[in-house]
Design a protein around this nucleic acid. Structure first.
Length: 503
RNA sequence: GCGGGUGUAGUUCAGUGGUAGAACUCCAGCCUUCCAAGCUGGCUACGUCGGUUCGAUUCCGUCCACCCGCACCA
């Protein structure tokens, strides 16, 4: 039987399949949907759970140096002041009414233009390498147009936020070069707000967490005191996070409610210690992505240039995946120094220091943070698994999931549904296997059709019971990818599937 | 937020100012010893609200959602 892989799937292919087979639905669909939210159906929830379980098993259970936790979604609002999210997540934006361009207010720079000390107008530019040169050039032009003689004063660029309201309308739009079209800075807060308690006032404002990481830092001391951990060690967490994105897009890739799998890995505070851990984590995480079935040739890394890093950050590498809509970030691995713990020590007034028995000294540990999106990973898994093959002039849709993360591990299919003995044996096998795996029983339709149904659900094994089974106690086990069949005694089915799933 | 496009069955698409049709899927039955077979029957749709009209799925507007650009993405 010859098989050929056809071209890569488009997002439409993926979305349509997700809907058709019950992986992912638009949230609140019967009410017209809600932008940026998605629901997981019967197959989706299994796939998602398996991905999370694989991560937890490999990163927590499979390692002696990492423990888990699960912090609440709503936490003390001061956590988000300490982390910087209250300030940095509310980016003030400026719109140009003329050109319809939108700018971050801290990226839009301006300066008064003085000739012999007298203000003759304003210039604006965008943050960038040549911002000063650009502004000075514009100032020259302005001076020439105004036909002014005299000495041009120095151009001192300031952020738009530093302008007073009466100056907003004098600053020219970078797009049009003319003043009068820029709006005042407007807040776009990315954190969802709610109120804790019955009273709706400023003192009861709380936030849905925009990341899970801070819940780990906030519990650092508790875990240090109870879990008998020693540097280096990590705390892992899987949980929902919420961001009120301006523009959610690309299906579940950027949604407003999503789930993260994060580790804060605490290490010595020496300035030269972090680099080894950092590179080790990049390797570990990259290997994990390949192990759950992401296509090797679609994975890559992106190293953040030093000048783009936050001031506290030592280094950051993203693991990228080639989605149908482009190469995008899957996971970020950041060396964050001890910024977060230090911030919480300052804001909470509680010590975040660790006493190192070996070194006989106290320090605030540094941290490496591998942070991964569950939904993005799931989408990458779907993109990697989706295969269209040509089989004897028919096309076959197959999701080639690694057996470990496949939603359904095996389907039990009686070859005929109107032969009681075959049905009885099939149900017995189904019941047995269902004790340890998510298996599926299907007796409707021709056998070929049932195989194809399972192919599109990504089920790695189909077990078929026929007349021979009644005679010799074996069943046919059909492999999803090769479509080849072998006969296995009923009693060995469970062990065979175990072996394939867990290695 | 802006510009453009789209919205009819589970999916992919036809079509109409007099309330709709296909293919595949799905369900039931018959048949069938292994890769979407056949036969019979069946379920299921005009995104929302409003306007025009005797009558709107169709024309117009609104909202919602999706897609493509732009901008944004700690």
């Amino acid at each position: 039987m010859s098989t050929d892989s056809l071209q890569n799937p488009t997002m439409d292919d993926i979305i349509s399949l997700c809907k058709r087979r019950g992986f992912i639905f638009q949230s609140s669909e019967i009410y017209g949907g809600i932008n940026g939210f998605y629901d997981y159906g019967p197959l989706g929830v299994e796939l998602r759970k398996n991905i999370k379980d694989a991560w937890w098993k490999d990163m927590v259970h499979g390692r002696e140096d990492i423990v888990g936790q699960d912090a609440s979604i709503i936490m003390h609002p001061n956590i988000w002041r300490a982390s910087g999210h209250v300030d940095s997540f509310s980016d003030p934006m400026v719109d140009c009414k003329e050109s319809k361009m939108r700018y971050r207010a801290d990226h839009l720079l301006w300066s008064a233009v003085r000739v012999d000390g007298e203000i003759i107008g304003y210039v604006s530019t965008l943050e960038g390498n040549d911002q000063q040169a650009d502004a000075e050039k514009k100032a020259e032009t302005l001076k020439r147009k105004a036909a002014k003689q005299g000495e041009l004063g120095p151009i001192e660029l300031k952020e738009y936020l530093e302008a007073t309201p009466d100056i907003y309308e004098l600053i020219p739009s970078p797009a049009t070069g003319k003043p009068g079209s820029l709006t005042p800075p407007r807040e776009f807060n990315m954190m969802f707000q709610t109120f804790v308690g019955a009273l709706k006032d400023d003192s009861s404002v709380a936030y849905l967490r925009p990341e899970t990481a801070q819940g780990i830092f906030a519990n650092f001391k508790n875990i240090l005191d109870t879990a008998r951990v020693k540097i280096p060690f990590g705390i892992a967490q899987i949980g929902k996070a919420f961001r009120n994105e301006i523009t959610p897009k690309n299906f579940i890739f950027r949604s407003r409610e999503f789930e993260q799998m994060e580790i804060e890995y605490f290490i010595e505070a020496d300035e030269d210690a972090w680099e080894n851990y950092y590179h080790e984590w990049i390797k570990t995480r990259m290997a994990w992505h390949k192990a759950i079935g992401l296509k090797d040739d679609r994975l890559s890394t992106h190293v953040h240039p030093k000048d783009k890093l936050a001031h506290y950050s030592r280094a950051c590498t993203d693991i990228m995946f080639e989605f149908p809509f482009g190469v995008q970030e899957l996971e970020g691995i950041a060396a964050r120094g001890n910024y977060d713990l230090t911030q919480h020590q300052e804001h909470s007034g509680k010590s975040m220091e660790y006493f190192d028995d070996q070194k006989r000294e106290k320090y605030i540990p540094h941290v490496i943070e591998p942070s991964l999106g569950v939904d993005r990973t799931l989408l990458a898994v779907l993109c990697s698994a989706y295969t269209v093959e040509e089989v004897e002039d028919e096309t076959r849709n197959v999701l080639k999931f690694a057996p470990r993360i496949a939603p359904i591990k095996a389907a039990i299919l009686p070859l005929m549904k109107n032969k009681p003995e075959i049905v009885e044996m099939s149900k017995r096998i189904y019941k047995n296997l269902s004790l340890r795996h998510n298996v599926f029983y299907d007796q409707a339709g021709a056998i070929g059709r049932r195989y194809r149904r399972m192919d599109e659900a990504g089920t790695p094994y189909c077990i078929t019971i026929d007349f021979d089974s009644l005679e010799d106690g074996t069943a046919t086990l059909r492999d999803r990818d090769s479509m080849e069949q072998i006969r296995i005694p009923e009693g060995e089915l469970a062990a065979y599937i175990d072996e394939k799933i867990y290695g």
